[in-house]
Each structure stands twice: as C-alpha cells, then as structure tokens.
C-alpha cells in the first residue's frame, strides 16, 4: 500500500525526509549465476559501476543531497562547497568497502548523514558496517539504513548504531516503530548500549 506519508524513522519518530537521494544512472546489469541459481548478493569489495555512470550521475543543484560513495570520491572538488555548507551526505552499499569512505574525507563527522543501502534484508554486513562506523571511526551524526529495510531487523540495526531507518515503501513505518522496543534488557554490549548486562545490572545468583 504505497502512500504519501513519510516512511522515515529518525530517533524513534516518523519524520519527513530532508535529504534527496542521488543515484547513478542504470548500468548494464549482468545476471550472474552460481550452480544454476541467480546470485543475489554481491561480494564485499566487488565493483558494480563504471566511471561513466559516476560521471553521468545527475546532482540536484540545491538542497541536502545524499550521494553515492563512488560519486563522492570522484567528484569531491565539485561537491566541496556544498560539503562545507553541510549539504552532503554519503551512502554506500553493503558490499562497498567502508575503508573507502573513511579515507575519502578528513573528518567523517563533517558528514551530517551517512546511509547504508541494503539490497536484501538478509544481508547482515550492514550491522558490522554500523558497528565499525560508530566504534572504530567514531562517527556521531545520523546513520541511516535504507533499501530492503523491514521491521524485524530494526532492533538489530538500532543496536549496531543506526538511528534512522527508511522503511521499505510497501510497509508501515508506524508498525515498525514498535519493533525498536522488542527486547528491554539485551545480554551483550553493542553500540547503543556498550555494557553487557552483567555490567549494567547487579545480577544476583538465583538460589538452587
């Protein structure tokens, strides 16, 4: 049921999206097969676009824009003034290398938004990317998941440092909000709550 309402969750609320998503023009999509089955996932580090696609990407002249990592890398000079104005967010795919994003900018926190595109909800690389951005690279601004984003993965995304989720268009963001509260006291330390439960609460042994 497509609707006009926003499907973007930011910090536990549904908000309208201030950012325009920039995508590359379609390239030649080669259908790959392995053992007779269509390959659904791209390998980490696999390159999936051409220099042409990067060059031909149409960038809106004004407003906050969320640009693909490859475009950001290749056209940084052109984007520099807008970057300085806080109008550039960067997105990457789960198979792209986070190192490329990190080395593309002096200060990651000069990006008000980083977004990770997950083509299939079952692709758990997005969780490690979130963790590394927050913990290793100390990224503090908005971190968004978009693509095949469904409510049953939200709790995990939140725990891995995401604070924004663009729920897939045919699903309700309203319903999805509930899933952010699936568990009240998770066991292990992660990004949102770094202490494992035994450091958070005084757990008394239960008598035998």
């Amino acid at each position: 049921m497509p609707n006009n309402k926003s499907n973007l969750i930011l910090n536990n609320e549904i908000v309208t999206d201030e950012w325009s998503l920039v995508t590359m023009p379609a390239g030649e999509e080669v259908v790959k097969k392995q053992a007779g089955k269509v390959v659904l996932f791209k390998l980490t580090g696999e390159s999936t676009h051409s220099a042409e696609q990067v060059a031909q990407t149409v960038i809106p002249a004004t407003g906050k824009i969320l640009v693909p990592l490859a475009v950001w890398q290749a056209r940084k000079e052109e984007l520099a003034p807008r970057h300085a104005a806080g109008e550039i967010g960067v997105w990457l795919d789960t198979h792209e290398l986070l190192e490329d994003l990190v080395s593309s900018v002096d200060d990651l926190n000069s990006l008000p938004l980083i977004a990770v595109h997950v083509e299939r909800f079952a692709d758990g690389r997005i969780f490690s990317i979130g963790n590394l951005l927050r913990m290793r690279h100390h990224y503090r601004n908005d971190l968004r998941a978009f693509g095949d984003v469904l409510r049953d993965q939200l709790f995990f995304l939140k725990r891995c440092g995401f604070n924004s989720y663009l729920i897939r268009a045919d699903r309700s963001a309203e319903d999805a909000l509930a899933s952010l509260k699936d568990f009240s006291q998770p066991y292990q330390g992660a990004v949102d709550e770094q202490l494992p439960v035994w450091r958070r609460v005084n757990r008394q042994p239960v008598s035998q």
Partner: peptide
C-alpha cells in the same frame, strides 16, 4: 550462550 543470544551484529551471517 548469553552473549550470542540476539547478538545484533551477527544476526544475519553468510
């Protein structure tokens, strides 16, 4: 067991 239960980062491994 406790650490791995609903481990958020390792919920959807290859």
């Amino acid at each position: 067991r406790q650490w791995s239960t609903f481990h958020p980062e390792f919920a959807l491994l290859p």
